[in-house]
Design a binder for these strands. Structure first.
Length: 434
DNA sequence: TACAATT
């Protein structure tokens, strides 16, 4: 029989050719085994390379863990054997997440902080691929700690770490966000989402440009971009076609999309943004003078200013068909949906943007930079405590040309009383010689 | 107001 306080161990990194009988001798060294089960696939019966192991005595389990866990590597494996309490052993109540650590703080610092509260089983600083601290840490004490240690930064976050379930949920949520499932525009316009959105934006942009007013921050941005594109202007002067930085293809079905009368195709294949403050158009100073409007205002409901804008656009389109035509191409096809963990592009592709309007979120940032290329990531930095934007963010493209185009067009761009600062993000490894 | 993603 086993003791009541026996611990079920998880054993990982076992070669798949080893069965219970092969493993037994290895583990019996530390005490009498109550149960040893190699995990097999439920359907195929395939060896999963791990096992559950319960000793009759708790003490045997602890000995085995300290002697074997990460201590030796079994033949044919490239990682050391794992011997630790199984997930079912209630680890969830002991592991803490420690956030907002200083970048320089080490495992030892964290250990020192938490030592007064009990024996520490494990303490890890979460690090990025480059080894830089991410400001988080895990630690497992024998008893849960709830107090923030004296002397620690008051903003230190100490809470129970996510359980596996929570982690999975969060991942799914993130994934869904990246897939645009929660983007209202997508739901609203279905298959034509990207196209319709572009149309709506153009309408807002043109109206804003024409009237010197602003429907919402995005309209102001879009308006300015329209001016900067300079593929055409209202007087009908068509600029020379320029090489787009990316996204030249027209989405399938765009020519048969709703409102075909507007999207009269012409031979302008793309655009290249020009610096701000183009002459002959209302400058950005005349835009965005109405203060802050909550975003989005882009749903085509009655009484929506955009609804009126839409009607106005029909006239505009009739009067200036060539001017209106580049719409389907001016906004490159929405970047292909690639669920990605990778949030940063190659060197020279990542932008740091400062002086963003307070109400700008990731979506707005994305929209703002979409015309310059494939945006693989756009992140507005938010204060963890208040959930408020800190008015700066990061945008990553998949190529340096797009990034440069975005800098050229958007750096110094005025929104309200502020001018955007758009520059290459500082490389992380600057000043880190090793 | 100034250069990230934390389990």
């Amino acid at each position: 029989m086993k003791d009541h306080d026996a611990i079920k161990l998880f054993v990982g990194q076992i070669p798949r050719n080893l069965e219970e009988s092969d493993l037994k001798p290895l583990f019996e060294e530390f005490g009498r085994i109550y149960e040893l089960t190699v995990l097999k696939d439920r359907f195929t019966g395939m060896h999963k390379g791990c096992a559950f192991l319960t000793y009759c005595a708790r003490d045997s389990a602890l000995k085995a863990q300290s002697a074997l866990h990460e201590q030796k590597t079994l033949p044919g494996m490239n990682r050391p054997i794992q011997v630790k309490p199984a997930d079912s052993e209630g680890r969830g109540d002991r592991k803490l997440f420690v956030g907002m650590l200083g970048k320089q703080q080490s495992e030892d610092d964290v250990r020192r902080l938490f030592e007064p509260f009990g024996q520490i089983e494990e303490c890890t600083i979460l690090r990025g691929p480059d080894g830089a601290s991410k400001g988080g840490s895990t630690e497992r004490g024998l008893a849960p700690c709830l107090a923030v240690p004296q002397g620690a930064s008051s903003s230190l976050v100490v809470k129970f770490a996510d359980t596996d379930k929570e982690r999975t949920l969060r991942r799914m949520h993130q994934m869904a966000g990246q897939l645009g499932i929660f983007n209202p525009m997508t739901i609203q316009f279905g298959a034509y989402g990207a196209y319709t959105q572009a149309i709506m934006q153009q309408q807002a942009a043109l109206m804003a440009a024409a009237q010197g007013t602003c429907l919402n921050p995005m309209a102001a941005i879009a308006a300015a971009q329209m001016q900067q594109m300079a593929a055409f202007n209202v007087s009908g002067l068509v600029a020379a076609p320029l090489t787009p930085s990316s996204g030249t293809s027209t989405p399938p079905g765009i020519s048969t999309a709703p409102v075909p009368s507007i999207a009269t195709p012409i031979g302008v294949n793309g655009f290249s943004p020009l610096p701000p403050q183009t002459n002959g158009q209302p400058t950005s100073e005349t835009i965005y003078t109405n203060g802050i409007h909550p975003y989005p205002a882009q749903s085509p409901t009655v009484a929506d200013p955009l609804q009126q804008a839409y009607a106005g656009m029909q006239h505009y389109a009739a009067a200036y068909p060539t001017a209106y035509a580049p719409i389907s191409q001016a906004f490159p096809q929405q970047a292909p949906i690639i669920p990605q963990q990778q949030r940063e592009g190659p060197e020279g592709c990542n932008l740091f943007i400062y002086h963003l309007p307070q109400e700008f979120g990731d979506a707005e940032l994305t929209q703002m930079f979409l015309p310059f290329g494939n945006v693989i990531s756009a992140k507005v930095f938010v204060d963890r405590a208040t959930n408020q934007s800190k008015c700066f963010g990061f945008v990553s493209f998949d190529n340096p040309t797009s990034a440069q185009a975005a800098i050229q067009a958007m750096n110094g761009f005025q929104i309200g009383m502020k001018r955007l600062k758009v520059q290459l993000k500082r490389p992380k490894d600057a000043n880190r010689p090793y």
